[in-house]
Amino acid sequence: MRSFGYASARDSADAVRLADRTPGAAFIAGGTDLLNLMKDGVQHHRHLVDVNKLDLARVTESASGLRIGGLARMRQVAEHHAVRARFPVLAEALLASASPQVRNMATIGGNLLQRTRCGYFRDIGSACNKRVPGSGCSALQGWNRGHAVLGGSESCIATHPSDLAVALTALDASVHVLGPGGTRRIPVGEFYRLPGDTPQIETSLRPAELITAVEVPRHPTATRSRYLKLRDRATFEFAVVSVAAALDLRGHFVRDIRLAFGGIGTKPWRSAEAEAELRGKNLTVERVEQAGRVLVRGAVPRQDNEFKVELVQRALAELVLGLGGLR
């Protein structure tokens, strides 16, 4: 790792001020992604602003929903009684992530901002538009089994690796930030950006903005919500394909449904079209299959990842039919 300066911030305002006025500064929370990227030379920061002392680690439930502090740890959120009882998809997505040690360290804010696991991105010897804009994308003609089939461009087809972000996308969460210009609330659907021809810009976060909290609204679908993660080994591995589903059912009648997907899109992928196939109708195997077909309608598979087009439809059917008691 190249050397850098370090300062521990006292509070949120202090953290933002430090990051704002120190050129080349970055926040460090758990450090579980940032330090890997810095060791590999993928990122360099002249200064790190440690935000671990900030009073932002609380998880609270109110009439309007759940508020998760930006510095809450993955384990803490996964074990929280309100999360488990009323937002189970969040607990499941978190428990399916990383390892117990990493979940003790990693924060919710850092999780949302973790960077892609595209091997070319993390190898400084390879061309990568996300790491070095304009250098080319090694994955387009290379080994792209793990890459996206939706939302890609000729600049980049990398997936976003966060399981939590997929679950939050299904629950219509929003990200609260504090920056030099004050506070903002960003719906998670607008937080992540498609690569287009600027894959180096991944979120709508502005310089020196700190994630202070994530808010998850209470909703009739949230209590019947689940996460299905398919991966190359039983545990401790990133998703090949994942599905978050939240369902408000009366008998077999779907009053409301939210669906989000991981591993197939260049950002956590919400499909309003697939939801529309199921909302306001009785749940049947045929309708779920139709929703799957609608989901992948615009898919652009590459050499090694064509299997994902089929796999995600099966995963969707497995999860939603299971939730609906049809499997």
């Binding site: 370090y6 521990s8 450090g31 330090l35 440690d50 040690q101």
Partner: peptide, 18 residues
């Protein structure tokens, strides 16, 4: 793996100054 305040963490992914 070491314990920090009783919890297991990976010591390669944290800075001593933290």
């Amino acid at each position: 793996t070491v314990l920090v305040d009783g919890e297991r963490i990976k010591s390669c992914l944290t800075l001593a100054v933290m």
